[in-house]
Design a protein around this nucleic acid. Structure first.
Lengths: 309, 309
DNA sequence: GTGTATTTTTTGTCCACGACAAACGCGATC
DNA sequence: GATCGCGTTTGTCGTGGACAAAAAATACAC
């Protein structure tokens, strides 16, 4: 908790967990092993993290997500960290830079929200929903994610971007009318996955093809996905995993869900965390990217010729 | 993690925390103090919660949110719990039952999603955005929450309801055009608050009055709210707290944010968790319900006469 | 009876430190 | 180059004690 705004602000371990995403256990064990963070203590022996340590923990978190190991970076000096960030920045200047959405990326900041919304809407109208998602939105979202990881974006900027895209996609999807086509697809994410954009983009790909999509949004417990799939007589359960999803959980969770679903219900999984992880996923259709979702749809339809005809 | 679907499924303490919202510390301390839950252990001494204990923990959580104390209910027998649920059910049959949305409430289940969406759209068109939010949506959302607490709804049903409402409200808000009116209002929730409906309803109230609303969605860290408020030159920061938000955190968090924001930025807080908690919140405008938000807006405008005129 | 101040009980969070399994990095081998 | 051990790294879980804030209970004045 903050004590004073005039002096240096301090934060409880719970506040640091909230703001960095590092668990209390992790924070304590780092202190024990690497000597950082080194928070002050209150009269009761509880940790009080100063602002600068919290900022540094945020930076460490980003480097961690980028693939660095804790032993290297938690005990590193400020200079070493700065070097690593610099390296990261240079690395991500990919040679095949897509020129076309560079201008849009520049609008992903708080004071150009209206411009961003207008630009996105224009691109959508020009390209159509599916091409817009594949060619414009997905690359842009990836770039925003990278920029955020490099610390070039406020968290608020990223949130705002997500909101704008949600507004646009939900409107576009809603305009296609529900339809009662087949297959009936249930879209959602597991409880540890909070990112909704992948889900919306998948829905935006499938709905124009005549699939009857129903989205539950994010964070549906496993048992409830099963219940919903049965209650709604769905043909397919489609899950989205962002690359931030804990790698080992993906396989466990998917196999658990696969085991609890009837065999006639297909299970599709897409997103960064399942990329190239087919191996141990029997009975799960791994969707490699947005365009592959159309292929998965076609496969399903080929395997399930219309019964009414 | 689940071991087998054929036998009785078991869950790790982390899985139980995810599915019930009860912290690991709380689960362990309940076991120590009340003798429940009483999970089995694996070879390594780690807790393995069977399915029925998890179900009961979910029920206990609902009763807790309804105001019961742990000492009464954690160690209670299954029969006592059933009695309490029954009592809860009878209590919530309020005498002034609003007839008009009883039919809508019945549509909040998986297989009537289309009906629900159509009914909501019709009500919106008939009443207009603000009246729709106040008279139809807010009561309906409250009833859905109660029905969920009584266990009469699948989690998936509630998710689906939230999705439908989001689709509708986002479209309605987006149709009003951004506008550059005053005040400039930044809407969001703190990192522990995941519910977005309150936020959307507030936005739906304010936008038609000509306020320039920008929503960051849910879960914005405190420091980033401050940064965003400054970067975007906002006049008001508006936060939403559902009644599930930990009561003591509300006051701490709000005061911390208040201290970190410049004095000329107003701070509004609304939602179940701040209801009747004015006392210790100096410098925070507590918004008591959706209609009060219009009053808060009027107050701000009275206090800040247009400078350009 | 109603409102207010004081004590007691309840309750969730925090601490320390040890243990351990899964994931990772690395070298040897096919 | 790919695959297989093997030591190291790393996050999570366990126990039990402590404590402060909140709630309930009690005492007391009007």
């Amino acid at each position: 908790m903050n004590t004073l705004s005039h002096e240096q602000a301090v934060f409880s371990i719970a506040a640091v967990e909230r703001d960095t995403g590092l668990s209390k256990d992790t924070l304590r064990v780092w202190e024990r092993r690497y000597g950082f963070p080194a928070p002050a203590r209150n009269a009761n022996g509880e940790r009080l993290y100063p602002q600068d340590q919290l900022d540094r923990l945020r930076l460490i978190r980003r480097l961690l997500d980028a693939g660095h190991r804790p032993a290297r970076i938690v005990a590193a000096t400020a200079e070493e960290l700065a070097d690593l960030v610099e390296t990261l920045r240079n690395e991500s200047v990919d040679p095949q830079a897509p020129e076309h959405d560079a201008t849009l990326l520049q609008c992903v900041c708080l004071h150009r929200a209206a411009e961003l919304a207008a630009g996105l809407r224009r691109a959508l109208m020009k390209q159509g929903l599916q091409r817009f998602v594949v060619d414009t939105l997905a690359p842009l979202a990836a770039e925003v994610g990278e920029a955020w990881m490099r610390g070039e974006l406020l968290v608020a900027d990223e949130h705002l971007f997500t909101e704008q895209v949600q507004n646009l996609l939900r409107a576009a999807i809603g305009a296609q009318a529900g339809g009662d086509g087949r297959p009936r697809i249930l879209l959602t994410t597991l409880p540890d996955e909070l990112h909704v954009l992948g889900l919306l983009m998948a829905e935006a790909m499938l709905v124009p093809e005549g699939a009857a999509c129903t989205s539950l949004g994010t964070r549906t417990p496993l048992a409830d996905i099963r219940a919903a799939a049965l209650a709604g007589a769905f043909d397919v359960v489609a899950l989205s995993f962002s690359s931030a999803y804990p790698a080992r959980q993906v396989v466990d969770d998917l196999l658990e869900l696969r085991a609890s679903l009837p065999a006639h219900v297909a299970l599709w999984a897409g997103g960064g965390a399942v990329h190239n992880r087919h191996k141990r996923l029997d009975g799960v259709r791994v969707v490699e990217g947005l365009e592959d979702s159309l292929l998965a749809l076609q496969e399903w339809r080929d395997a399930h010729p219309s019964q009414s005809a």
